[in-house]
Amino acid sequence: MSTILAVNQLTKTYQSGDRSLTVLADVSFAIQPGESLAIVGPSGSGKTTLLGLCAGLDRAGSGEVILCDALLNELSEDARAAVRNRNVGFIFQNFQLIPTLTALENVMIPAELNGRKDARVAALALLEKVGLADRSHHYPSQLSGGEQQRVALARAFCNNPQILFADEPTGNLDESTGQMVEDLLFSLNQEMGTTLVIVTHDLELAGKTQRIIQLKGGQVFSDTRTQTPA
């Protein structure tokens, strides 16, 4: 597999009453396996929309998204869900943990959805890695923001995804907690050889990735490499 994610001439338009608003216009790029990439841009530039389309959370108006050899445009929501479950990990700015499940149960879900028998063991191991083994039976409301994001990190890696999408992963955290989450994210990413796509405002965080795509007005403004791929 030469590319893990290919985006070709992607356009997304939202309809609001009788007016239409084009959020993404003719966006194209490709990512190699193991690569780390940041999507940056001002508010309203279409970052989160692009991430959602790349991860198969939404359908494009035109153009195509090929994720892990699957042409997402042609897939039903269920088929896209299956692609997500097998290949994709997520981290959101506001953590998006299931409030009624404990930390351990939250982490176990992707593996359980996949029918894995070792879900519990795998989840506990990951919680151990993010330093929350002793909080595994706590509900999200009983955890701090940083702890919740670490649980989300553990969950994101639970199915050994090929690609991880992170939407402002440190946006809701203070500097030191943000730093800890950042370190964890990159070290787990490296350890597991996962492709990483981060949407962020934080140029410092973006600088830690190998490549930065800058969006402006729904179009790719620049696509630059910060480091030489390993």
Partner: peptide, 8 residues
């Protein structure tokens, strides 16, 4: 969220 994580 389950849907996001890949539930059918």
């Amino acid at each position: 969220l389950l849907r996001t994580l890949g539930a059918s």
